[in-house]
């Protein structure tokens, strides 16, 4: 049923730190690696070794240059973009077949690819470009929040996390229940003033982005001279050269 659940028991989602993300694309790569054998497998590619490869990815990493006026230093922001598992997920309500749905137990938004007719309307309804059409299979695909990892009893408990979170070398991705104010992710959002994307559209995304920390404009004081003076040798050959050249 593509009506949204009244409320969800949990709001599982990601918190992504734009301060520490180094833009290495490891999360995107590992997402592709895990998911091409996971719940929504396969993540097909067209022309993978050709000049213009194309294919289904659930996570894309952009880099932006942000100019912030004369007084603030500019920023380079690396920005990973994946499904935000929105509360008001219009991608679900527009689906005519019931293929798209939001789970009442944890808020995860999924596609049942056996029911999908490939009308693409859900991808039009997603502001964030989180859904990508699989040309080979003729159905829509999207991030599953690694549903096949986070509940996977065959994995060690510490590995029951999304592939993108586990692989991030900078620790910029965090997974948890954002409806629980005491969860790690909720605390991070509170501490670092996490922000939703395009809140003006009213989708109420579950995922949150931690903005870059304030940058220092002044150099740090490490006890060194502000300006280095040229050293003049006092005796010997070098001193003779110095004196000769200084004349």
């Amino acid at each position: 049923m593509t009506s949204l659940p009244q409320a969800t028991n949990k709001k599982l989602g990601l918190v992504i730190d734009l301060d520490t993300c180094v833009g290495c694309h490891a999360c995107a790569t590992n997402c592709k690696e895990w998911n091409t054998g996971g719940h929504m497998a396969p993540l097909t590619d067209q022309n993978p070794y050709g000049k213009k490869p194309d294919g289904v990815w659930f996570n894309r990493v952009h880099s932006f240059e942000v100019k912030r006026g004369k007084t603030n230093p500019g920023l380079t922001v690396n920005f990973p973009r994946s499904c935000l598992h929105c509360e008001n997920a219009a991608c679900v309500t527009v689906c005519p077949t019931g293929a798209s749905y939001k789970r009442a137990e944890d808020g995860i938004v999924l596609v049942n690819t056996d029911k999908c007719i490939g009308c693409k309307l859900c991808s039009w309804a997603c502001p964030y470009g989180a859904r990508e059409f699989d040309e080979d299979e003729g159905v829509m695909k999207k991030c599953t929040l690694c549903i096949d990892r986070i509940y996977n009893k065959t994995l060690e408990p510490e590995d029951r996390q999304p592939a993108c979170v586990l692989t991030c070398p900078a620790g910029a991705r965090h997974f948890g229940d954002l409806s629980d104010p005491d969860s790690n992710v909720s605390k991070l959002v509170a501490e670092r003033a996490g922000r939703p994307l395009m809140p003006e559209l009213g989708y109420k995304p579950t995922n949150s982005y931690l903005p870059p920390r304030a940058r220092r404009v002044e150099a740090a004081n490490i006890g060194a001279e502000k300006q280095l003076e040229a050293v003049s040798p006092r005796k010997g050959f070098l001193s003779w050269i110095d004196n000769t050249l200084s004349r």
């Binding site: 894309r60 952009h62 240059e65």
Partner: peptide, 23 residues
């Protein structure tokens, strides 16, 4: 608002992929 970072001017620096995708 799309990237949740305030800025006067936001321009793409490195693209996420080097050929056109579905989006």
């Amino acid at each position: 608002s799309a990237i949740a970072v305030d800025g006067a001017e936001i321009t793409p620096l490195d693209p996420p992929h080097n050929s056109a995708n579905y989006l």
